[in-house]
Structures are given as C-alpha cells and as structure tokens.
Deep mutational scan, measured.
Amino acid sequence: MFYPNSPQTSPQLTQIPYGQQYAMMQRQIQQPYHPFATTEPQARLYPYHYQGPIQQEQGGFITQQSTAASPQYVQMRVTPVDQSIMSGYPNQTANGSSSSSFNYNIHPQQQQQQQQQQQQLRHHAMPVGSVPLQDDRYRKQLIVNYLAPDVTSTDLHELFSRFGELDGARIIYDKQTNMSKGYGFVYFCHAEDAKEAVERMSGYEFHGKWLKVGYSTNPLNIVPSNSSPYVHAGSRGAAG
C-alpha cells in the first residue's frame, strides 16, 4: 500500500523548493479562506456584503464582478436614472436638479381664491374633541361614552347635575331594538360647569363602566337656548 506522503511516492527534499517541504498533501497545500485577509477597505468593513468592485458596462447597466450573493443577503441591482424623465418638472436647472418651490404660472386672482378656499376649509374642519370658538353652545354640550346598558337618562342627569344647572341629558337608544347604544349627551347651562365635568368625570366608574367624557361637536345635538329642557323620564321611549 502506498500513501500520498510515503517515501516511495514523495520526491527528495532537495528537489522541493524551500517553504513547501512540509506541504505535501493536497489539504495542506490548499490555503484556508480568510474573509478579512484583503487589501480593499470595503471588504474589511463589510465582509458579507462586499463582492468586489463595481464596473460600468456598455448599455448603462451596473453589474458586479463577483458571483451571486448568499441567500441570506439580498443584493440590489441599481440602474442609472434617465434624465429625460425629470425634464417635465418646473424650475429645473441645466444640471438636472430642481428647486423646492414650484411655479405653475397661476393667475394671481386664482391663487388668492385657492388660498381663501383653504382658509375656509381649515375654519370649518374641526378635529374630534375640539371646541370651536365662534359658538358658545359647543362648550356646553358633552358626550358621555361607555355607558352601561342599564343607565337611563334620569341617572345621567343626576350624575352630572352636581356640577351645575343642566339644560338636559339623554341616552341614545336603538330604534329597532330599543336598547341603549352605550353613549349619551349632557347639556349644561354654563360653559364653566361643562369644563369642570369634563375634567372630573373622564375615567369615572359608573355602573361598572369607566366613562369617557368630552365635548360634543355635532351641531345636530345642540340644544337651542330658547327651547324647553328635555324630559328626564326613566322610560326608554321618552328618553330616546
């Protein structure tokens, strides 16, 4: 039997160049792979992502010199942007860049009308829970959420009447099932009393439920100042 490094198959040491006398086997001759043993700084910083320098080929596509990437890492192929796409944008300079302001050559009167329309939209648009300043009635009506099913309009009136005089209180019921929808409205005579009720009743436990109280901004629920107070009856038909 002959071994790869046996004296019968191995040459004389004098015939082997210096430095390879003890590297006779194939696994010894093959050098191990060192990912950080390279002179390129990109490979030292990113050993798993770097795959060699990027070269520009004919046709405008950018390719990489090395083989496919590892399945664990996804390499994105980048193509140059066609400058003709950006030619339609206004205020574009000769080098292809555009300024931040756009001039669509709008007539001054049209621009003024658009600004007025935007101001009107901001004036009428009102986020949930906010209180408008032009109508004091919005500051007097509250919406009470997360009410228990057994709470009546009379219970709601008695709960909030300790903060001040009320114009009314009612629970909203479903017309088909005649069941409470879980929320109601309270109408105060003074805005200061309503503000105190919002601050003190939010998070209050009532009939096993934690109440959420806020201003009601729905104009359909506003009680006119010259109208008669609501009837605080315990029956659902009268309260709904």
Rank of each mutant, 00 (worst) to 15 (best):
V81M: 00
G164C: 04
Y89H: 07
N178Y: 12
A194S: 10
Q26G: 00
P32N: 11
A148P: 03
S202T: 11
A125W: 05
Y215R: 06
H157E: 00
D150E: 02
L147I: 10
I16K: 04
I16N: 15
Y173V: 04
P47F: 13
G208P: 12
P11A: 14
H157G: 04
G129C: 12
M201L: 02
Y215I: 04
G208L: 07
A194I: 13
Q110Y: 00
P71D: 08
Q176E: 13
Q119C: 05
F160K: 02
H107C: 07
Q110S: 09
S97L: 02
R236E: 06
Y18M: 15
G237Y: 14
Q28V: 15
S6M: 12
N145I: 06
T93V: 02
V186F: 04
S70D: 06
Y50G: 03
H124K: 02
V131C: 10
S100W: 13
G234R: 11
V151H: 11
V151K: 05
Q28L: 07
N226L: 07
P80S: 03
Q42S: 08
R77I: 13
E165L: 09
I16E: 08
T79C: 13
T79M: 00
T38V: 00
P127F: 13
S227Y: 05
L220A: 03
G182A: 05
G52M: 00
D155Q: 02
R236F: 02
L156P: 13
H190C: 08
M24L: 07
D174H: 03
V223N: 14
L211F: 08
L121Q: 12
R162M: 02
D150K: 02
Q112P: 08
M76C: 12
L142A: 04
N226S: 05
T14R: 14
I222W: 13
H232T: 04
L159M: 11
Q55S: 05
L156C: 14
S70P: 11
H190Y: 14
S216F: 11
A23H: 00
Q134W: 03
H123V: 09
M201C: 14
G164P: 11
V231S: 13
I222C: 06
V81T: 06
A169Q: 05
A191I: 14
T152P: 10
P47D: 06
R200K: 03
P4C: 12
T38H: 05
A148E: 10
Q115E: 12
S228K: 06
Q110I: 00
T63D: 00
R77P: 05
Y3L: 10
Y104M: 12
H157K: 10
S235Q: 14
Q72K: 02
A68Q: 14
D82V: 10
A148D: 14
G237F: 14
R27V: 15
R236S: 04
Q118M: 10
Q26V: 14
A69S: 08
R200Q: 06
G168A: 00
D135T: 05
H232L: 07
H232G: 12
A37S: 08
T14L: 13
Y3R: 09
G129V: 10
E192A: 01
H34L: 13
H157R: 04
T39M: 13
Q113N: 04
R122S: 10
A94S: 03
L121W: 15
Y48I: 09
Y183L: 00
Y183C: 00
E158D: 04
R27K: 11
Q119H: 05
R137Q: 07
R200F: 00
H107N: 12
G88R: 07
L121E: 10
K212W: 03
P32V: 09
V81H: 14
P7T: 08
V151P: 11
Q119D: 00
A233D: 13
E196S: 11
N226G: 12
N226A: 10
S216Y: 04
K140Q: 00
Q176Y: 10
S70M: 01
Q118Y: 08
G96E: 12
Q26D: 15
L45N: 10
P90E: 00
D155F: 00
M25K: 05
T154L: 05
D167L: 08
P11Y: 12
H123R: 01
Q64T: 09
M76V: 07
Q20W: 15
A194D: 10
Q26I: 06
